[in-house]
Design a protein around this nucleic acid. Structure first.
Lengths: 354, 354
DNA sequence: ACCCCCGATCGAATCGATTCGGCCTAGAAT
DNA sequence: ATTCTAGGCCGAATCGATTCGATCGGGGGT
């Protein structure tokens, strides 16, 4: 017990006890290479005797040049990033995608240079990295990765040259959704968008905010909507949440004289919030207000079948994971752009004749 | 460019180019030890020239014996674990707690032995591990950690001997909440509980299910409620979600003749679902039905100030993180049991006189 | 003018496992 | 019976950085 504390046994100790060389013992563990069953058994027995818990992953990764860890870089604090089920689904997809690697997932946030000897993006023992929804602000991190020779894959965010990009048809999908609303007869449409900048400025949708955008997703979805409704105004939410959607909705719907007949929300959570706001104000959905979401998640607690642009979040994550696998195998990673499908639920209808 | 690909520069290369020894170059980077400014600058310049991205974390961790990574073991799939904001908050707390370490968070799921050379709990390059809500099923993993000499901290779940435990007063808190309901005058109370087993069996709250419980949290909270309402029956949810709460609520409230005047839910999400169910059935909360939650999270989209037992989730995480820091410093980790506070919101009231 | 001491630098050992080339021996082929 | 073959095992180099003890040189004390 105490000797365990003082000196954990190493492979060499095990080998000595088993009466074989370290190299043989190694083979016995890793399985690759010709080792007689008898010997292997002896080594394993010796290991058990000594309480040896298997090769030290640190030494192994130094020698092998692989750590078996894939980094996931989130732009926000964990708390914020995981607020939206979409991100969680993507994470799940990534897990699936890298399953053949048997690698672990290391959570990294891109909060500038990690102080001291912290394990930041510039010095994490990762074999590859998945960048999630990262803005150009990540430039230097990407540069660091390139220098370190660590392959990367970006989800929803241009990262640069040789970095495969997994994305969806944000603009086109939103355009289709908007088109659908127009076909229903809507002409007076308002938007509730995701934040455009890292500060998450909330408020009215102004040209200034749009111009200063660092968020591709928000910009693209906006552009798509404006292809159909060029003059559509609206509100910018600070984050993708029901509460933010509700606040935006309350503002947009406050004045019954000027309120729109349809609202395009850039996420399902926001859409759910808008619906809540409408119900609070006694506005019937979809009879008096149509609401279009984006994501295609099941919003926990929402008693509507949201009309939305369903994006394959899990597939996105999986594709990213698979690209990582390719990259690590030395093959070029494949960029993929998924297509969202318009799911028509019960939150959209022909406009109410006021 | 191509030479970069063929051979990434090492510290030795940098040292050679700077005209110093590897040891000096190392000091220049790690900062510890006396190095003249001139030399340091020369080394850094050489590094820049060569495109050296800093010391290899793998080699560093082998030598230092520390990887700078803390593992977080979740019992469920990522998707499930992150469904409940409580878990995310705890993760956030852990991040805060281990901040002084500057360590990264490695996500591990305890899905049995990881196949092949996968990075499982038995072979992850982690300095310490936080076990979240883990059942006895984790026994062998804990054993592996012990053998490897990796310190661990458990949140909500007895893990064994020398493992510090971070928990809350599940039983006592629930008892207080139940007491409060009784003081209000409620006598007819039903429960909506978290799942009792790994299978997440949904259904009626039966003695069999309770007897076969592997989930301390659910059992303890149940016990607390029954200290006040010994005969309270109810429903077992399959997971902590609004939707599950709603289904349970619909069942419990279906028969207006026998329906309870109050429902004790074991999580805020479940409580929110119960409230939704009540509203769907035209039952006013709190006038006709009191609802008590557990957790004290802000349920996104819920337009009620939930009466609930607020537990300090972030603090729990932080305490776990701090315990990890202690453990890694060679000091004994401290077990902590936090106290939940009864937050009286607007979802409880004196029972409706039928 | 001499000696001591301290700061800067270097060499070499070390962390623990993997892997490649070589050697030895037992069994097969001729 | 001899040679060939191949499986099984070992030795030694290697992965890349850290760190301890030793060395060297120059400024301060007397």
């Amino acid at each position: 017990m105490q000797s365990d504390e003082l000196a954990r046994p190493t492979l060499a100790d095990v080998a000595a006890r088993a009466g074989v060389s370290a190299s043989t013992a190694s083979l016995a563990f890793s399985g690759s290479g010709p080792v007689s069953d008898a010997t292997k058994e002896r080594v394993l027995a010796a290991a058990a005797d000594l309480g040896y818990a298997g090769p030290d992953p640190r030494a192994r990764s130094l020698r092998r040049g692989r750590s078996g860890i894939v980094g996931v870089v989130l732009e926000e604090r964990i708390r914020d990033a995981f607020l939206d089920p979409v991100n969680i689904q993507m994470l799940d997809g990534i897990t699936e995608g890298i399953a053949p690697l048997g690698a672990g997932l290391l959570l990294l946030t891109d909060t500038g240079e990690a102080g001291g000897n912290a394990v930041g993006i510039e010095s994490a023992p990762v074999d590859a990295v998945v960048l999630i929804g990262c803005s150009p602000r990540l430039g230097h991190s990407v540069e660091a990765l390139r220098r370190r020779g660590i392959p990367a894959v970006a989800i929803e965010g241009a990262a640069g040259e040789d970095i495969p990009e997994i994305s969806i048809d944000n603009r086109e999908a939103t355009r289709r959704g908007a088109e659908y609303l127009r076909e229903l007869g809507h002409t007076d449409v308002a938007l509730v968008t995701l934040p455009f900048d890292a500060d998450r400025t909330r408020g009215e949708l102004t040209p200034e905010l749009i111009a200063g955008s660092t968020a591709d997703t928000a910009s693209e979805r906006l552009a798509g909507a404006r292809l159909v409704f060029p003059d559509a105004g609206g509100r910018v939410a600070a984050t993708s949440s029901i509460e933010e959607g509700r606040e935006a909705g309350l503002t947009l719907l406050a004045d019954s004289a000027t309120r729109p007949t349809a609202i395009i929300a850039q996420s399902d959570l926001l859409a759910a919030g808008v619906i809540n706001a409408a119900e609070e104000l006694g506005i019937a959905v979809p009879a008096e207000l149509s609401v279009l979401g984006f994501d295609g998640i099941r919003v926990d607690g929402l008693q509507h079948d949201l009309t939305t642009l369903a994006q394959p979040s899990v597939s996105k994550g999986r594709a990213a994971g698979e690209a990582v696998v390719q990259l690590l195998a030395g093959r070029p990673g494949e960029s993929v752009c998924f297509t969202s499908t318009l799911h028509v639920g019960d939150t959209t209808a022909v406009p109410h004749h006021r």
